[in-house]
Design a binder for these strands. Structure first.
Lengths: 159, 159
DNA sequence: GCACAATCATTAGCGGGCCGAACGATTCGT
DNA sequence: ACGAATCGTTCGGCCCGCTAATGATTGTGC
């Protein structure tokens, strides 16, 4: 990507999945650049946010809430803990668990990340009017609901 | 992802970049599953298509047309050549180059991939009406043009 | 009360797509 | 003829999503 030199009007360019992937790549790049400008990446933001919303919790619980895979949680928490943005303490009432909590430095970092995030969103949507932005969000949400909801979820809850 | 158990109405869920990434993930999964059901992946489709459109060419040229990084081309061509979908022959007129060409088996595979691709597109857009699909494509194209065109390209072609 | 099942944290690894750095071989520009 | 550019290749990295296996620890059924 990034170098279409020999101008590239190729066959797949019009496919919805391609348009989606490409714009998502741009979005990802914009957001990622914003995050990395303060030494973070997506998982860091997601974990910090979840932590602020849900309060201190075990890694497994945070994983469930944030949608971050357990095995990725370990690394993410390690990284955040190393920077003092997060604290890992053993749960006295269940020695299998760690209780992860947000430090004040973590909160400050979260504020920075949110700022960057907001900027990226603006940059991403720059060419669209407010109504168009909402149209886009609406259409994407519909697709998302469809593919999250009716995907593999049995109608009758298994007993 | 995939396991929101402790229902996850988190803060970032409404962000355009998030909606984009998530729907792109679904698209990517759908398309990828379709491809892998005939033993291929995205790069294979892109290379085969480029090859059919542009005819036999060097790896570098194909890389430019397809947007596939040179270093990834090597592996992609290796894989396709191993399955006899593509042929690698030295260019007699320039001994640095290989000339890659599509075999008839490659063409047949390409037909299969296109079929799968079409199916994935349908599955992806299932919940949208034809007009909505076009709206979506239009909005995404606008974003894409914006971020591809006016990004770092100097107005005055450098002399 | 005890064996078994389930949960938690951790480590290791794979895969796709995208990218950069380096290197030898070759060809081109002048 | 010499330096610059191009080509193919290998190696490595990033991010995000996922699987599998292991060792602790907890709980549950009988």
């Amino acid at each position: 990507m990034e170098n279409p030199s020999e101008d590239t009007p190729t066959r797949w360019e019009g496919l919805p999945s391609w348009l989606l992937s490409q714009t998502a790549n741009h979005a990802h790049r914009l957001v990622g650049d914003g995050f990395s400008s303060v030494g973070a990446r997506g998982y860091h933001y997601r974990l910090l946010t979840t932590l602020e919303e849900a309060g201190p919790a075990s890694q497994a619980a945070l994983g469930r809430r944030s949608g971050i895979h357990l095995s990725d949680m370990v690394a993410t928490i390690n990284e955040l803990a190393e920077s003092g943005l997060v604290e890992r303490a053993p749960d006295p009432s269940d020695r299998r668990r760690n209780i992860i909590s947000l430090t004040s430095a973590g909160k400050r970092q979260l504020r920075r990340l949110e700022k960057r995030l907001a900027e990226s969103q603006d940059e991403l949507l720059a060419p669209l009017s407010p109504e168009e932005r909402q149209q886009l969000a609406g259409l994407l949400s519909r697709l998302l609901d469809h593919h999250n909801g009716r995907t593999g979820t049995p109608e009758e809850p298994w007993s």
